[in-house]
C-alpha cells in the first residue's frame, strides 16, 4: 500500500478515495449535509512549522471538495474542528477516539453539536476511514 505524507493534498486525495469507495459510509452518511474543516495547530518541534487548514465537504453520502486550504476557507466550513498536531496524529493512528477527545477538550468543535451527535456514526466512519490511510507523519521522518 502506498504511504502518504500527512496533511498534503495527496494524503487528502487518498482519504477522500477511501470515503468515496465505502458503501457503508454512503449508507450511514445519507443524511449528512455540509463541510467540515480541520485545523492542525502549528508545532515546529514536530515538523509542523505552520498551522495546517483542511477543508472537507460531504453531501448525502457523496464526497465533494477535499483540499488543503487557507484560514479563511477553513473558517467558512459548517463545522470547524481544531486541535494540536499530537492529538490529530493520535486520532489518525486510532490511538485516540475523536468523541473522547472532544469531551476532554483535546479537540475543539465549532458548529451545531446537536447535528454532530445526531450524525455521530457518520463522523466516526469518516475518521475510521482516515485511519486506513497509510500515513507518514512529519515527526516520524
Amino acid at each position: 500500500m502506498e504511504a502518504y505524507k500527512a496533511f498534503t493534498q495527496e494524503w487528502m486525495d487518498a482519504w477522500k478515495e477511501k470515503i468515496a469507495g465505502s458503501k457503508e459510509y454512503r449508507e450511514i452518511a445519507k443524511d449528512w449535509e455540509g463541510s467540515v474543516s480541520i485545523t492542525v495547530n502549528a508545532d515546529p518541534s514536530k515538523n509542523i512549522p505552520q498551522t495546517v487548514y483542511m477543508f472537507t465537504d460531504y453531501w448525502h453520502g457523496d464526497v465533494n471538495e477535499f483540499v488543503i486550504c487557507d484560514a479563511a476557507k477553513a473558517q467558512s466550513a459548517k463545522f470547524i474542528m481544531t486541535g494540536d498536531y499530537a492529538r490529530w496524529k493520535q486520532v489518525a493512528k486510532k490511538e485516540l477516539d475523536a468523541t473522547k477527545a472532544l469531551m476532554q477538550g483535546k479537540l475543539k468543535l465549532k458548529g451545531d453539536l446537536t447535528y454532530v451527535v445526531r450524525n455521530i456514526k457518520t463522523v466516526n466512519k469518516v475518521i475510521d476511514l482516515l485511519t486506513e490511510v497509510d500515513t507518514i507523519f512529519p515527526d516520524d521522518v
Binding site: L102, M103, Q104, T114
Partner: peptide
C-alpha cells in the same frame, strides 16, 4: 471540566430548538 461545555452546548442546542 471540558465535558461540562460539551454538555452545556448540547443542552442549549436541544432546548433552543
Amino acid at each position: 471540566v471540558p465535558f461540562s461545555f460539551i454538555l452545556q452546548e448540547l443542552l442549549i442546542g436541544n432546548i433552543e430548538k
